[in-house]
Simulated scan of single mutants.
Amino acid sequence: MTLWRHFDIVDLTDKTHLLVEQHISYLKDIEFDQSYEISLIRESVLPKETCEFWTYLLTIEKGAELYATCRSKIYVKGIEPI
């Protein structure tokens, strides 16, 4: 399951990309009839010759309590070298 795939990520809109790796940590049970605060940030970029690997962190919280995290590594094709 790709938890973050329903986000519109402007930086990926015109780029070919593929999920390479994903680690999900459930810290508390998530109930589907509740509202949660969700954030998605890009943590790092690993440049290669013709591509990059971007790592994103998705967090699911309610109040001050963290319910789950999902760290995803994305292969991004066609990046021009700097």
Score class of each variant (00 low, 15 high):
Arg71Leu: 11
Leu46Gly: 06
Trp54Ala: 01
Asp29Arg: 12
Ile38Phe: 06
Ser39Phe: 08
Leu40Pro: 08
Gln34Trp: 07
Leu58Lys: 04
Val45Trp: 02
Ser72Pro: 15
Glu49Ile: 06
Leu66Thr: 00
Leu57Gly: 05
Phe32Asp: 06
Leu57Thr: 10
Thr50Gln: 10
Leu66Asn: 05
Lys73Ile: 03
Glu31Gly: 12
Val45Thr: 14
Leu46Cys: 07
Phe53Leu: 13
Tyr67Ala: 07
Glu43Lys: 15
Lys48Leu: 11
Leu40Cys: 02
Lys73Met: 14
Phe53Pro: 03
Trp54Asn: 09
Ile38Met: 04
Tyr56Ser: 01
Leu66Cys: 04
Thr50Arg: 13
Thr69Gln: 14
Asp33His: 09
Ile38Gly: 02
Tyr36Pro: 04
Leu66Ile: 02
Thr55Gly: 03
Cys70Glu: 10
Tyr67Val: 08
Lys48Pro: 03
Ser72Phe: 03
Tyr36Cys: 01
Phe32Lys: 00
Ser35Pro: 04
Arg71Cys: 10
Leu40Trp: 01
Thr55Gln: 10
Phe53His: 08
Arg42Asn: 01
Leu57Glu: 05
Thr69Gly: 11
Arg71Pro: 09
Pro47Gly: 01
Ser44Arg: 14
Tyr56Met: 07
Gln34Ile: 07
Ile60Tyr: 00
Glu43Arg: 13
Phe32Asn: 02
Ile38Leu: 03
Ser35Cys: 04
Ser39Thr: 15
Glu49Thr: 14
Glu37Leu: 12
Lys73Gly: 02
Ser39Met: 05
Glu65Lys: 15
Phe32Val: 07
Leu66Glu: 03
Thr55Ser: 11
Phe32Cys: 05
Cys51Trp: 03
Ile30Gln: 03
Glu61Phe: 07
Thr59Trp: 13
Ile38Asn: 00
Lys62Cys: 11
Ser44Cys: 05
Leu40Ser: 01
Val45Asp: 01
Lys62Gly: 11
Ser44Met: 09
Asp29Lys: 09
Ile38Cys: 05
Glu52His: 00
Thr55Arg: 02
Thr50Lys: 13
Cys51Gly: 02
Asp33Met: 07
Lys48His: 08
Gln34Arg: 12
Glu31His: 10
Glu49Arg: 14
